[in-house]
Amino acid sequence: MSEFKQEPNFDAQGRKCVIELRNVKRNFIVGSETVHALRGVSFKIYEGEFVTIMGTSGSGKSTLLNQLGCLDTPTSGEYYLDGVPVKDMKRSQRAILRNRKIGFVFQNYNLLAKTTAVENVELPLMYNRNYSAKERRRAAIEALEAVGLGDRLMHKSNQMSGGQMQRVAIARALVNNPAVLLADEATGNLDTRTSFEMLVLFQKLHAQGRTIIFVTHNPEIAQYSSRNIMLRDGKIREDVLNDNILSAAEALAALPKPQDE
């Protein structure tokens, strides 16, 4: 592996580059047609960045995120994760990577049916032999408490609201302490208050040094991240750094208190 390893490159502030895409294309063959979901995307994301990805529906955001999450491989182009080309990895190596380094929140949650919240969150740790059953349970409970579901541990996925399921999915992505957190519309189903609570959580994780990539439709959320990438039609249209990051905690405090509390 080491021969493929890129010289680790650093940005102006000396942060390591964790993700590098070079002209990544992803085509889908649908019948006789070829859908170009990604038409050559290149960018670098450095350790500790909080990136929001925006774009219209069908612009390729989920496809891009699947690439970043090592769930899918590019049709052409290169993806280096921590300097290692993902293309050259075996399936099982990518699986281990997903298990240890990446937390992924799916657009449609993807929870195990008829399974309790805590068991859903434990799932990634089931595939990590370093965790004992006890540690696993404790980590899952901590993650659920972090998303404000400490009182819903034993609720089954079909007994929860959409927002609760989404928070379980976030907890599952957090439970393995990932270096890179990928979220696809992670706040799409939450009310304003809860989405700000989630944003506070994401900013806290960001402050702890985690790299976060957050797909959203909501332009407001971009203000709370450090960088914003706009996709259109499978290409990057805009990639800007945010100099004035707003604090989600302040915004949350400024929200009117709910009447019934």
Binding site: R100, L123, Y127, N176
Partner: peptide
């Protein structure tokens, strides 16, 4: 199938 996909996406290897 969906369950299998989900398990794989959180890190299950083929052999798991």
């Amino acid at each position: 199938t969906r369950e299998i996909g989900l398990r794989m996406s959180v890190g299950a290897r083929g052999r798991d």
